[in-house]
């Protein structure tokens, strides 16, 4: 998978955080994980990708980060429902960015939100995923990209 393709998804997340009040978002050094041991925080928003590459991209973050993020965009209600919505929104931003960059070449599904790590349906176990850590305030979140050609 090309670096450019991966970058598009990273940009999607960075884009999202740059629209919040606290723009100070940092991307850590990307690393690899085996899919049989997927990386995830508390809440995860997954988008399915199809086309020249297929697989999934997900944004995963700890609850505390999401609560803080909700507060920073002026939402005082930090219920689970809102937290899921927020993760969905980040996932949507990722897919929106990907759509505008790849055009019709790729098909991108609507986000699916889950708690914890994606299962085998989304992550073929024989593959590796790229994990791109995202640092926002004192928290860690991550974009995980698992695509095959």
């Amino acid at each position: 998978m090309s670096q450019e393709t991966l970058q598009v998804f990273i940009d999607g997340v960075v884009n999202y955080f740059q629209h919040t009040n606290d723009k100070d978002v940092k991307v850590g050094t990307p690393y690899l994980v085996e899919n049989n041991n997927p990386a995830a925080y508390d809440v995860t928003g997954i988008i399915g990708i199809s086309g020249p590459y297929r697989g999934c991209v997900y944004f995963t973050a700890p609850r505390i980060l999401l609560k803080h993020l909700l507060l920073s965009i002026g939402e005082m209600d930090t219920s689970n429902e809102h937290i899921f919505d927020l993760v969905g929104e980040v996932a949507n931003t990722i897919s929106g960015n990907a759509r505008s960059r790849f055009g019709h070449e790729f098909m991108i599904s609507v986000p699916v939100m889950i708690e914890g790590a994606p299962n085998q349906i989304h992550l073929p176990s024989r593959m590796r995923s790229y994990v791109i850590p995202v640092y926002w305030k004192a928290y860690h979140a991550a974009v995980v990209i698992c695509l095959e050609q």
Binding site: M1, Q3, Q7, I10, V27, T29, P30, L32, Y130, I132
Partner: peptide, 14 residues
């Protein structure tokens, strides 16, 4: 230098 700059390296590693 930022973490993002390492993306190419990670791809090579993969």
């Amino acid at each position: 230098l930022t973490g993002n700059d390492y993306l190419g390296l990670t791809v090579q590693l993969e």
